[in-house]
Write a protein that binds this DNA or RNA. Structure first.
Lengths: 299, 299
DNA sequence: TCTTCTTACGCTCGGCGTAAGTATC
DNA sequence: GATACTTACGCCGAGCGTAAGAAGA
């Protein structure tokens, strides 16, 4: 269960080739073969079928363990070496598209800050890898509930804001003139599938406890204006924080049921220091802090 | 970043002693010293202060990474070796106290099942370690929201049931005759702190977004009847699923605000097989399934 | 001075590469 | 017979223990 062996195993499984993995990792074919043999011997299970190379059931299972394990291992190393590199003075902030909001932008100092907009899922990894010093993530949540975040490293999350939600519909839509909408009214509609820029449809399904919310057009970019424009053009509905204005030709109708909010949280690794601390303080109204990324996180 | 080195580091930090760690791990003092030196050299950071032995800031940070990492590594090994040990025929089910409900018990076959009641936090680890074949966990959640679970291994969670909530108060309590209660009415009350048997107070604070819910008596056991008895005796309030009858001398008043439910989920590792599959099927109404324990879990 | 961590040094064994072997297409 | 994984074997270095050294109580 040496990480080197696991890394080799994951690579072999991904490339479905021993020799390919050897090339990629800078080993000889022989070494890769020995790695896999060592793992299989250690666990007492065949992990890979040869010719063609494909994981066995046990191998599949090991992959599910190994991938997040290696991710966390890399994150740990990156986090620590970054600590050694010391405060650089400049600050990089990784933000989810919907988390970029006038209020948050106002809290930033004018200079020495780099703002990077990333899909929300990649933000914890960016923090863990040291690509960013602070992160702003967002998501759907019950009021005052913390967000659920991928667990790649020990991160501290602090509430920044919560906003009500609204559904963007083209002006001609039959429901466009309602004062408010329930999610249940919209299960059968076609929805824009924009997990990077907008809110993932899975979260809607989970919130309502049904399948449905069928995807229409998919958009993988991170541009929110594109998303509102697509909604205005009738390519599908989208649920956004009420702070986002609808594009011309569209209406934003408040969501009344269930009681969900669009929540944004500030994410940081360990204790913030230097310029990160000031920005973090500016972004967060008193506390609402909870540690995430740990079994004992609700302690 | 070899796991052996990490394990040594964690042990040294825990015992605050190189020689103690050496004894516990079966190394010589010298080897432990070399392990720590190797880690510090690799990361370029001092991790431990000597004399007295205590982690530095970087060391603290590494501990936060290393502990869950080693936990997952052990879980992976245990999971795989258990896979090798093959289906034993007998079935062990690890359940959180509040998850033991007549309905769930009715779904169990009469024989060849061992039921172990554990604190809810230990159940994922028990599954990962192979101490149990299936788990039943519970918690507070918004309706149709999945539970948040510690992330020690790739586990599959399936909804079993959701129940409304009720506050148990002694019969003489001023609020005991209300038809329903809001959580906000009870912030300043004294609460039973029983994280193993009942619901952790932290979850109440998170749900209501305030501190408060001050702990009165703490109870660390897993016996629900003890908990209801303590509430009846006036040692503090407690929030329980409405399916749990109050003890004599207490009343259970439904919780109306916020809209939370007591949710129970079935937990299993990988694909269920053998007797575990039948029990799993009996416990779960159609699907409501979501994978947990993975960065990509909301994919 | 005693305890505890560090450093020096030699040995062993794990793990890599080279090269020969074997199985599958 | 070509390709791709396995096995044999020798070499090097990582990592352990023994033992001597240094530093704090």
């Amino acid at each position: 269960m040496d990480p080197h062996l696991l890394r080799t195993f994951v690579t072999v499984a991904r490339l479905a080739s021993f020799s390919g993995a050897a090339r990629e990792l800078g080993y000889t074919q022989s070494a890769v073969s020995q790695h896999i043999a060592a793992l299989e011997g250690d666990l007492g299970l065949p992990l890979l079928a040869r010719r063609p190379v494909a994981p066995t059931r046990a191998g599949e299972r090991l992959l599910e363990h190994a991938r997040p394990l290696l991710l966390r291992l890399d994150a740990a190393r990156a986090d620590l070496t970054r600590m050694a590199a010391a405060p650089a003075g400049d600050l990089t902030l990784a933000a989810a598209p919907l988390a970029v909001h006038p209020d948050t932008l106002a809290a930033l100092p004018a200079t020495r800050v780099t703002l990077r907009v990333l899909p929300r899922d990649e933000i914890p990894a960016a923090l863990a890898a040291g690509t960013a010093d602070l992160g702003i993530v967002d998501g759907l949540a019950a009021p005052n509930d913390p967000l659920r975040l991928p667990d790649v490293a020990p991160l501290t999350a602090t509430r920044v804001a919560e906003a009500p939600l609204a559904v963007h519909l083209p002006a001609g839509h039959p429901l466009a003139h309602r004062p408010g909408l329930r999610l249940g009214d919209l299960i059968d509609a076609r929805w824009l599938d924009a997990p990077a820029a907008g809110l993932p449809l899975d979260r809607l399904r989970a919130a309502h406890g049904t399948p449905g919310f069928r995807p229409a057009l998919r958009y993988d970019g991170t541009d929110v204006r594109t998303l509102t424009a697509l909604a205005a053009a009738g390519h599908g509905l989208t649920l956004l924080p009420a702070t986002i204005p609808p594009a011309p030709g569209a209406t934003a109708v408040p969501l009344t049921e269930p009681r969900l909010v669009h929540r944004t949280e500030l994410l940081r690794t360990g204790e913030p220091a230097g310029p990160a601390a000031t920005v973090a303080a500016a972004l967060t109204t008193p506390p609402q802090s909870a540690r995430v990324g740990h079994p004992a996180r609700r302690g």
